[in-house]
Write a protein that binds this DNA or RNA. Structure first.
Length: 472
RNA sequence: GGCGGCGUGGCCGAGUGGUUCAGGCAAGGGUCUGCAAAACCCUUUACCCCGGUUCAAUUCCGGGCGCCGCCUCCA
């Protein structure tokens, strides 16, 4: 398996720290405002990476975080006249809801910054004692020039950074390059006690503290958005490696590309965001995932409604195929998956998680599976491979619940003169009734069944293998 | 200005030094079909420009043009 390591900027053979185990930390959001389409892309990209690693037999420990104390959260709270904790609580709930609906598997560890203040203080203290940080005016700063490796991730050198760096009013840096590890709190801001007085953590320190606490120094993979390479991840490396007097903090750095809108990066500060929950209100979660996965994770992807429509159509093609197998009453799970298909999938994914290539493999398999079914041949091995692949990508069709239609279905059953029962049983009975009517060329009854079910949003499809239904 | 990336057919998007082809969507034509769909088959000026290396370049090298990201908070 080869992955593109931002540290070194090259494809490298992936070798876990401990055989058979992978430790994976991904930078989660700062919960300052509602999630947008870009956040979803990141979450899905690493969800698939995690699922794929597991599928290959590796035991993955996946940790991500919620940064729930930070300048922008405080600013948002002050604008609204509520506490920072309230903004963080509400926004966190939105992110977790969006992730859940996107079928992002919950992490093994979900770390909140505000629950790791002691670890951060401990890390900062160690940096001070080792001469890499200094308190000043109630703040604590990291002394960038004390860490020779600074810039190795983002390809910058310290002397060229000076021109852009500056000291904001109220800061007490010795060097414009330095960054805050701890900030003295102003009245009304969140505050914790510390050896340097009441204050709150800087933005970069929480990931260093939380990742190391859960996964240990020198863990396997650290992920995040490409826009975090500098300064956030560069600073994480500096903090952790300076404190440990060891390297590397992280073996492999993976960064996902940005989502753009009309060619520009979607971001809060530009104001060109499309809400993730809004998108999920109008598109099926699996279609959104497919939209994301059509490009390899490092490439930028353009958001446009038409592209979601395309993804919806592509998803229908996948699910239609799988429904044919359901109608044919086969049991793919019991079959041996088609080895060539799985091998092709694996080689695409082993090439830096090339989901675009992997989807090509999947669609090829679907065409072949459909062809076999048309010919009346055995498509079960293809279907079994399809099931594995769509499970790894989490774009398989979820079981449809008809529970909310129970009353309506009973009413139809009564009108059509059959007995009621569970919603699924009624639908099955109606399909049987219609099949008998069709055999007797009583198309009026057959069409009535189709129409009645269509009114509830249930579509019937007739195929050589039988009739299937789906909603919507 | 510095660092990094990208430029493929109507749109999205993989990939490769040469042989038949990614794949999806859209469009057109067939086959099948009680209806409605789905499916299968066929089709539609691909590789930004200019040099170079090579028997052969979309693929490697150099230059140019264009676009994007980071250099300030950002997934």
């Amino acid at each position: 398996m080869r992955v593109y390591n931002t540290l070194g900027r090259e494809l490298q053979e992936f070798v876990p720290r401990a055989p058979g185990k992978v430790s994976l930390y991904v930078c989660g959001p700062t919960v300052q405002s509602a999630p947008h389409v870009g956040h979803g892309r990141q979450a899905v990209a690493f969800d698939v990476i995690r699922r794929y690693l597991q599928w290959t037999g590796l035991a993955v420990r996946y940790v991500t975080n919620i940064t729930d104390v930070e300048d922008k959260i405080i600013a948002a709270a002050q604008d609204e006249g509520v506490t920072a904790a309230e903004v963080a609580r509400r926004t966190t709930a939105q992110f977790l809801e969006a992730y859940r609906r996107l079928r992002v598997a919950p992490p093994d560890g979900l770390a909140f910054a505000t629950e790791h203040i002691p670890e951060m203080i401990e890390l900062i203290s160690r940096l001070i004692s080792r001469g890499h940080a200094y308190p000043a005016g109630g703040d604590v700063y990291f002394a960038v020039r004390s860490f020779p490796g600074y810039g190795k991730l983002s390809g910058r050198n310290v002397d060229e950074l000076v021109s852009g760096a500056r000291i904001e009013p109220g800061e007490h840096k010795r060097d414009p390059l330095d960054f805050a590890l701890w900030k003295a709190s102003k009245p009304g801001e969140p505050v914790w006690e510390s050896p340097w007085g009441p204050g709150r953590p800087g933005w970069h320190i929480e990931c260093s503290a939380m990742a190391e606490k859960d996964l240990g120094f020198g863990f396997d993979i650290h992920g995040g958005g490409l826009d975090l390479v500098f300064p956030h991840h560069e600073n994480e490396i500096a903090q952790s490696e300076a404190a440990a007097e060891s390297a590397p903090f992280v073996r492999t750095w993976l960064h996902n590309g940005m989502v753009t809108l009309r060619g520009e990066k979607m971001s809060k500060s530009l104001g060109n965001v499309v809400g993730l929950l809004d998108l999920l209100a109008s598109s099926r979660p699996e279609a959104v995932r497919l939209f994301y996965l059509r490009a390899q994770y490092r490439q930028p992807i353009e958001y446009a409604p038409d592209l979601l429509t395309e993804a919806e159509a592509a998803l229908d093609r996948l699910w239609s195929f799988r429904r044919r197998l359901g109608a044919a009453a086969v049991v793919p799970d019991a079959d041996v998956p088609d080895a060539a298909v799985l091998q092709a999938f694996r080689s695409a994914m082993d090439d830096d998680f090339n989901t675009a290539g992997a989807l090509g493999v999947l669609f090829d398999a679907v065409r072949e599976g459909n062809r076999l079914l048309d010919a009346g041949e055995d498509a079960n091995p293809i279907a079994a491979a399809y099931d594995e692949i769509t499970a790894v990508l989490a774009i398989d069709e979820p079981a449809t619940s008809l529970a909310d239609l129970a009353g309506d279905l009973d009413a139809i059953a009564a009108r059509m003169g059959i007995s009621g029962g569970s919603p699924d049983a009624v639908v099955t009975a109606l399909i049987d009734l219609r099949s008998r009517a069709r055999s007797g060329r009583d198309f009026a009854v057959a069409d009535t069944v189709r129409r009645e079910l269509a009114a509830l949003g249930i579509t019937l499809e007739d195929g050589a293998d039988g009739t299937t239904w789906h909603r919507p």
